[in-house]
């Protein structure tokens, strides 16, 4: 039963999350409120692991969330659920239209979704900040990390490593 539910929920994410990178985060955040599969804090850990391991972030997150919810089988089912809509839709497009172009209406809709996707990530980010940043020290570390990310633009793995060392040194 949980496998069916996992497949359905991740199928939905695969259908509605459009783009790359962190676009699945708001959808996964919704799952923390709907099920007891993982908490918002665990979701934050998943983002960190998914950013610092090879593979598409969305796929990594689905696997991690599935394993957390229902073990190895859960990881496989959630990941398959996430990619199934892509496989179906892309095959249909490739089959029906030899020369598929993103048409004007499709483009209007996609352009319109993009600001909403930004809002979704802002909102999810704020919710994750609420469970993560508990005092002033956290806020100061955040400010320093944020400034160096914007200033030096190194890879995310570098900053997550830096943050981990900071956590150990300061016993956060």
């Amino acid at each position: 039963m949980i496998y069916l539910l996992l497949f359905f929920e991740f199928f939905k994410i695969g259908l509605f999350a459009i783009g790359g990178g962190l676009v699945t985060v708001p959808f996964l955040f919704d799952l923390t409120e709907k099920y007891t599969w993982f908490t918002a804090k665990e979701l934050t850990d998943m983002i960190a692991i998914s950013e610092s391991t090879p593979g598409p972030i969305g796929v990594n997150m689905a696997t991690y969330a599935g394993v957390n919810a229902a073990g190895i089988g859960g990881g496989i089912i959630a990941t398959l659920g996430l990619v199934t809509p892509s496989v179906i839709v892309i095959i249909m497009i490739a089959k029906l239209m030899s020369q598929y172009q993103c048409n004007r209406r499709v483009n209007t809709v996609l352009e319109g979704i993009r600001p909403a996707v930004v809002a979704l990530i802002v909102f999810a980010g704020l919710e994750l900040a609420k469970v993560t940043m508990t005092d002033l020290l956290h806020g100061i570390i955040f400010a320093i990390l944020f400034a160096s990310i914007r200033f030096y633009k190194k890879s995310p793995v570098f900053y997550l490593g830096l943050a981990a060392v900071t956590g150990i040194v300061l016993k956060l």
């Binding site: 962190l22 994750l128 956290h138 990390l145 944020f146 981990a164 900071t166």
Partner: peptide
């Protein structure tokens, strides 16, 4: 301890992604 630090890093990365997304989408 490490993960407590890493979580702050994740929020900082998301904040940075938001700025990039804002600049290219809004």
């Amino acid at each position: 301890y490490a993960f407590a630090g890493v979580r702050i890093g994740v929020v900082a990365l998301i904040a940075s992604v938001v700025i990039d997304l804002w600049q290219s989408n809004i």
